[in-house]
Design a binder for these strands. Structure first.
Lengths: 248, 248
DNA sequence: ACCTGAACACCGTTCAAGT
DNA sequence: ACCTGAACACCGTTCAAGT
C-alpha cells in the first residue's frame, strides 16, 4: 500500500555516540519488541520507552512506523542472507533453490512478523533484493526463458509467503501464552469438522485425520515440492521428492 | 492472530425494521467502504457515519472490527461460491480445481482487501469452509492419500494467497489515484535494476525485460500451473499447460 | 431489542524548543 | 546533529442511559 520510501543510506556518522542512540540501537530494540510480542506490539511510544528517549528521537532515525518495520525486516534478513550465502551453491539448481527456500521458511517460523514483508522492497538495493537475486541465480543454470525464470522465483517466494501468512494467523493469544496447547487448538478444528454432515462435506471428512495434529513444516515442504516438481518438469529435468515413483 | 470468534448466528429477527439497521445493511456499508478505499479505511466511526448511527450501534451487530472484517469477507464470498458452484464440475479434477482457483483470484483482484483473510475462518461453517470443501472435493477423484489431498489444497490456496499479498501491496496511493501510471511504477523497478552491476546481479539483468510491464494474472497462472503440474505428476497424470512439451 | 454518544485508553505524527 | 515532550488528529471499545 505504501510507495517505495526513500531509504536514507545508513548514516555512518562519527565514532562515538551515546550507545543507546544509533540506528542499530533503534533497530535492535525494534526487533526485540517484535520478537517478544509481534507486529502490533511495536509502537513508537513503546520503542522510545525502551530506548529511554522521547518519541521524537525515533523519528530522527526513521521516517515513520512503516519505514521502521521495513528496516527491521532488512536488518534481520542480513542474517538469513549470510546463512544462505555460506553454502557453495554448486549442486543441482533446484535442490539449491529448495534449500534456500527452507532457510527462508525457518526464519519466518522464528519471526512470524516477517510476514509477507520480507520481499516487499525489492525496488532498491537491500537484503530483500539480494535474497531475490540469490534465489533467482539458481535458475540461470536451468534451460528456461527469462519470463519462466521470473515466474518461477515468484512462485517459490509465494510458497514461503503463503506459509508465513498461515503461521502469522495461527497462534491465538491463548496458545501463545501457553494456556491452550497447540494440539488442543487444532483439535477444535477436527472436532468441528467431524460434526459436519459427511454427505455435504466429503472432503473434510476425508482429510480430517490428516489435518489433526498436522505439521506446519511438512505442509510447507509439500507445497514447495509441488512447485519445484512442476518447475523440474518445465525445465526438462526428472522429478524430485513428492512425485509418484514408477515401479520398484 | 485472533482466536476463532463466536459467530452469533445471523439473527433472523422480525419482519420490519428500520431499513438502514440490520446486519445486511452493516455488512453492505462495510463492503462499500472497503471497495472504495481499502482495509485501513474501514473504521467503526466511518461505518457508523455512513449508516447514520452512533458507534455503539455497530457493536450490537458485530463484536469488534476484526469480526466485522471477517463477516464482510464471508458476505462477499457468498458470490464467489455461487459462481464456483454454477458449473457442473465433472471434467478433469485438476482442470476444475484450476478453474476454481482462477475464479478466486479474480475475486481477489476486484477486492484486494480479501487479502489473506478469505480462508482464515475454516474452523466453523461459513463460506470459507464451503469454498475449501469445494476445492478439495475435486481431489477426491484423484489417486492420492488424504494427507496429499490436504497438502494439495493448502498449496493451491497458497498460490492465491500469495498473489493476493502481491496485489495488496502493489498500488501505492499515487497509482491508485491515477496520478502515476502502473507502467511508470513498474518501470521504476526496471530502471533501478538496470543500473545495478550485472556482475553482482546477473539474475535481475536476465529477467528485467520480462519483469517490465509484467501481467499479474499471467504471473498468478504461471505459479498455479507449476503447482498443478506437480500435483498431476504426483497423481500419475500427464502434465498440463506450462510443462515442457516433448516433440511434435 | 436496539440505539446514543460521551468517555477511556490508546495510537502515529508533527514541531517548536532545547542542547 | 540530535533529543524532548506537549499537542493534534485520529483510532477501537465500553457503558450508562435512553426508547
Amino acid at each position: 500500500m505504501t510507495p517505495p520510501r526513500q531509504r536514507p543510506a545508513d548514516r555512518p556518522s562519527r565514532e562515538r555516540r551515546r550507545a543507546s542512540h544509533s540506528i542499530e540501537a533503534v533497530l535492535g530494540a525494534a526487533v526485540e519488541l517484535l520478537d517478544e510480542s509481534g507486529e502490533p506490539a511495536l509502537t513508537i511510544r513503546g520503542l522510545a520507552g525502551r530506548l529511554g528517549t522521547g518519541v521524537g528521537s525515533v523519528y530522527w532515525y526513521v521516517s515513520g512506523r512503516e519505514d521502521l518495520l521495513d528496516r527491521a525486516v532488512d536488518h534481520v534478513l542480513g542474517g538469513v542472507l549470510a546463512e544462505i550465502e555460506r553454502h557453495p551453491g554448486t549442486g543441482d539448481p533446484v535442490d539449491e533453490l529448495r534449500r534456500m527456500a527452507v532457510t527462508l521458511f525457518d526464519a519466518v517460523v522464528d519471526r512470524p512478523w516477517l510476514g509477507s514483508r520480507f520481499m516487499r522492497n525489492i525496488d532498491t538495493e537491500g537484503n530483500s533484493l539480494r535474497l531475490y537475486e540469490e534465489l533467482g541465480r539458481q535458475l540461470l543454470r536451468l534451460d528456461l526463458t527469462p519470463l519462466q525464470r521470473f515466474h518461477a522465483v515468484t512462485a517459490v517466494v509465494g510458497v514461503v509467503v503463503s506459509s508465513a501468512a498461515d503461521l502469522g494467523q495461527e497462534p491465538p493469544q491463548a496458545v501463545v501464552d501457553g494456556l491452550v496447547e497447540r494440539e488442543e487448538y487444532l483439535g477444535r478444528y477436527a472436532t468441528n469438522w467431524r460434526a459436519l454432515d459427511p454427505g455435504e462435506y466429503p472432503f473434510l471428512h476425508d482429510i480430517v485425520d490428516a489435518f489433526d495434529g498436522h505439521d506446519d513444516k511438512q505442509q510447507f515442504l509439500a507445497a514447495l515440492d509441488l512447485t519445484l516438481n512442476g518447475l523440474r518438469l518445465q525445465a526438462g529435468q526428472r522429478p524430485g521428492p513428492g512425485a509418484r515413483t514408477e515401479g520398484p
